[in-house]
Simulated scan of single mutants.
Amino acid sequence: MTPRSIDEITARADEFADMFEGYDPKPGDLDAPVPPVMAVKLAAWRRDVAERELADAVRAAREQRLSWREVGNAIGTSGEAARQRYGATA
Rank of each mutant, 00 (worst) to 15 (best):
Q64R: 15
Y86K: 06
Y86Q: 05
I9Q: 12
D18M: 05
A11R: 06
D48M: 00
A57I: 09
P35T: 03
I9C: 02
R65Q: 14
R65L: 13
I9D: 12
A43C: 07
L42P: 01
V58W: 02
D7F: 10
A57E: 07
A13N: 15
P27W: 05
D56R: 01
A60P: 02
A57R: 10
E8M: 02
M19F: 13
L54D: 01
R47Y: 11
K26E: 12
I9E: 10
R12K: 12
A60D: 04
A82M: 08
G28D: 02
P35Y: 02
I75L: 07
A50P: 00
L66N: 11
V37R: 03
Q64N: 14
P27G: 08
R12S: 15
A11C: 11
P27D: 02
D14W: 13
V71K: 00
R83Q: 14
A61V: 04
T10N: 12
E80S: 15
L30M: 14
P36H: 01
A43K: 07
E53Y: 10
D18S: 12
D31P: 09
S78C: 08
Y86V: 08
T10S: 15
F16N: 10
S67H: 02
F16H: 08
P36S: 04
A55W: 05
V49L: 04
A32H: 03
E21G: 14
D14N: 13
I9A: 11
S67E: 06
S78Y: 02
D18K: 15
A61M: 12
E80V: 05
A32F: 08
E63T: 13
R47C: 05
L66F: 14
A74Y: 10
G22R: 13
R85P: 06
